[in-house]
Structures are given as structure tokens and as C-alpha cells.
Nucleic acid binder design. Sequence first.
DNA 1: GTAACTGCAAAATATTTGCATCCTT
DNA 2: AAGGATGCAAATATTTTGCAGTTAC
Lengths: 139, 139
Amino acid sequence: MEVLIDNILKKNQLSVTGSRKKILELFLQSNGALAHSDIEKKTGEKFDRVTVYRTLQSFLDKGIIHTIPTSDNSIRYALCKDDCSKGHHHDNHVHFVCSKCTNTICLDHVTIPSVKLPTGFKASEFQMIVNGICKSCQN
Amino acid sequence: MEVLIDNILKKNQLSVTGSRKKILELFLQSNGALAHSDIEKKTGEKFDRVTVYRTLQSFLDKGIIHTIPTSDNSIRYALCKDDCSKGHHHDNHVHFVCSKCTNTICLDHVTIPSVKLPTGFKASEFQMIVNGICKSCQN
DNA sequence: GTAACTGCAAAATATTTGCATCCTT
DNA sequence: AAGGATGCAAATATTTTGCAGTTAC
């Protein structure tokens, strides 16, 4: 794990520092998406708030993570899968937001179906969010 | 128009006031979605910022408008269509976000295709956002 | 007249920026 | 050693809350 994390950072020309390792580890552990506040909580106040902002921003810039649209004012970030790092972000799967546990889960195997847009519109990216009750909260 | 606006408000047991009429009118005019900041701009600083927050909240509560997920920290609101007011929000169309003019447009005639979720997941709502260049910015 | 709505002030939160210091390479 | 990353302080921006005055019904 340790090695994997270092490799991801190096591959993206980011220096390997404590906060980056820790935050990246968080993403690798949770297979869902994280909001800024989640990260602050789960790292246990170890880092400055500002460092979290900047770390997320640099991960975004490098394409290590991407944002997921939400309906509340809290951007959520998720790891990009392999094909993302090549520049284009084809994060081509559906995201599921559980209304019970509020987790955002990547449904990696559910691909976003394509839609036909009216003439004049040129699409560059498709996002799909499904709200409901997730597997773990089902009872 | 004036009458229509009053009717919407009355139908939802909201008293008819200047700010509500003005803001509702804005929504009726723009067939896209509006962010809080859009509303402040377009009403020309006439209302207190707080009034805008509260007005939007009461419209949300009554189901007159709904939120649209975004990837930047700016909730966008759009008018609900007729079948929304019955309680369930089946805002069943695709939203288009133009990366040039940043407008969010309701593609009323593009329905969200259904997807098959993994077992254990129960969906209650589907949202789809398409990013790209809109009709007006195409040149 | 009463309940609901608004505007102002202020509190609480969230985000950004500058700069000195420290760490990675 | 040099450039980049971090933490602190502080500037901005955003959202929420309380309260007194005003307006709609």
C-alpha cells in the first residue's frame, strides 16, 4: 500500500509528503467519494485545513481525483480510475448517493448510458447520480 | 404573467410578496437553472441576500423549485414542472451545463435513460448532467 | 389584528491568499 | 541548495440566526 501511494504521487510529479500520503490513503481505503469535511474528520485534525484544500486542488490538477456533482453545497471527490490519468477524464460510471448513510459510492460496473442531445449541443462529459438506499443500509 | 406568478404562490400557501414575485419571475423567464449568485445579480441588488436565501428555501420546501447537482460549490435551482408539485419530484430530464456561458439548461425533451443497479441498491431518483457547449455558444 | 415576511446586524462557516519556515528532491 | 509544501494569520466569501419593524391576509 505504502509503495502504491508513493508511486501514484511520483507518477504525477508530486513530492511525497505526509499529508499527501495520508489523504491519498484515505481515498484508496474508502471506495466511495469524500467531501472536504470527511477528510478533515478522518485524518483526525492532523492537518491544517488549508493543507487539505491545497492537497485536493493539486490532486485535481494532476487528475488523481475528480469531483462528483452533488445537490448540497459540498463537493465530493473520488479517485480516478486508470484511464483517467491520461488527461481526459472519462469517469464513465454511475455514482450512487445513499440517503441514509450519505455515502457516495462509485458503481464502477454501471456505465452511463448515452443520450441523444438536441441539435446544437456538443457534449464533452456525462455524469449520472442515483439517489436511494445503498446495499449496506438496506434493512 | 403577473397572474400566473400570483397563482403559483397562492397554490402553495405562500403569501404574495415583492421578493417572491420577483424571484419567481426570474425563474419563469430563464428556462435554465439559477444559482444563488445569479439571482442576486439579476435582481439588481434589490433584496437582501438573506431574503434570497429564505425565499429559495421556501420555494424548495413547497416543491416549486428543485436543486440540480453541480461539480462546483454552487447549488443551482430550477423550476419544477407540473408533475413535481404532487410531492414526488420526478424531474425526469437531462440538465446541460455549458462550459462557455456556464448556464444550466433543462433539456426537457431528453429523458434520463434507466440503468440497472447492482443487487441491494434501491434507487429513488436519477439525475443526469451533461457538460459541453450549448447551442448559443456554438461558434 | 395576527401571522408571516423582510432587512439589518452579527454570528458561524467556509474558502482564499501571503508569507515565513520546513521538507523533499 | 532550490523549489515546492506546509502552517499560521488574516482577508474574503458564504450561509445561518435573532430580532425588530413591516406587510399580507
